[in-house]
Write a protein that binds this DNA or RNA. Structure first.
Lengths: 213, 213
DNA sequence: ACATGTGAACTGCTTCACAGCG
DNA sequence: CGCTGTGAAGCAGTTCACATGT
């Protein structure tokens, strides 16, 4: 049943994203049915885990057969909220901002960058693929006018908390943060961090402790 | 004591990175001692968690007092393997690669990008801040010659598995992957993924399910 | 007196194993 | 018969609470 799920762990959500990607690959190859075994085999998880993850949201499979690829794809998209498109603001048009703007996987998943803001007067006014860069001083008005749902922050760590406070003040509830700083936000706002230095540090730890495994 | 730790969870390692960052902030402010309470307060964790995390590796605090900031910083750097410097190769000099190359937090933590590789003949031969871009065809020789420890992959998903296989073939044991693909590697190789589309999808899910919290 | 270090209790995620159903 | 869906068991990570040491 597609009933209201009780509690969904962060890891389950991440795996759903993964399954969706695999399903799309299967779909391209013209595969119409997959088993939990096959879905698990592709990535780092188990068949039981796949079934548990999906069962939180309903029963999408056919016993003795498996899951219908296009149907399961649709269901996961719906669960993740990807059947609609999301309006995204990019704050910070530096190198990271530029890379993100070009990143093809955002668009294909329904994330539309409708707003770009920057501090640098030399960049303000420029057109990026049809989107005019506006000054970060106009953040509040701009985000309101362009009806932004999600803010991506690619600004220096020194200013990121200021930017967050302003983003939160216009009722934005979801933030993707690229600055290596722990943000303070009200607890109805969701923040996801992409911390590249932290990822390298985890690799460093793994290398040093390679012996004990 | 700094004895051989049994089992260290991924989350503990991530939090150590975080603590280190906070310690550096405290150090800048001239604070000489912090309690687990203060370390936890800064970021999203608890005092008990801080003490548990640290106790895996030794006892670095003084009862009744707290932790000496510079000492604990040194210890965490040692634990994470950050007392030495790591030689890093950047494969892919596109937008994401360029952003990463400029990213200041890599250098300050001892990650030195000593090698840049790209596919595009127009980019090969260029100097990026003293590092000459070499053709990805020379990957094996170049990584060996430049004694690379860690490879950062910022290449299109269509080619990433090929690149991984070649990187693995020259005995590199740590990979930071920016392509939205589950990589196949031997199990003595550690891979960390930075999947920005997945992060946005998690935000999408959170927005859709905001009601039930 | 105060904050660490740590066993014990708890919570939640993962794996197991099998009943249920096409 | 085969593979899903799921309660129960197992395991890992977190929180609690207090003994320990300065």
């Amino acid at each position: 049943m597609a009933a209201s799920p009780q509690k969904v762990s962060e890891s389950t959500v991440r795996r759903l994203s993964l399954y969706l990607r695999f399903l799309e690959e299967f779909e391209e190859k013209g595969v119409t049915t997959v088993s939990s075994e096959e879905l698990a085999g592709r990535g780092g998880t188990t068949a039981a885990q796949v079934r548990k993850d999906l069962s939180i949201f309903g029963s999408f499979g056919k016993r003795g057969l498996g899951y219908a690829v296009p149907l399961l794809g649709r269901e996961i998209r719906r669960i993740l909220g990807l059947s609609r498109s999301w309006r995204v603001a990019l704050v910070g048009a530096g190198r990271i901002g530029a890379a993100l703007f070009e990143y093809p996987n955002f668009r294909t998943r329904g994330f539309r960058i409708v707003t770009v803001l920057d501090h640098d007067p030399k960049k303000v006014g420029r057109l990026w693929d049809g989107t005019r860069i506006r000054h970060v001083d106009t953040l509040e008005e701009t985000l309101r006018e362009t009806k932004v749902d999600i803010a991506i922050l690619a600004v220096p760590e020194e200013v990121v908390q200021d930017v967050v406070d302003r983003v939160v003040s216009v009722e934005i509830k979801a933030i993707l943060n690229f600055a290596p700083t722990q943000l303070r936000v009200p607890n109805d706002v969701v923040v996801n961090d992409v911390n590249m230095a932290m990822e390298l540090e985890a690799l460093s730890f793994a290398l040093v402790n390679r012996a004990l495994r």
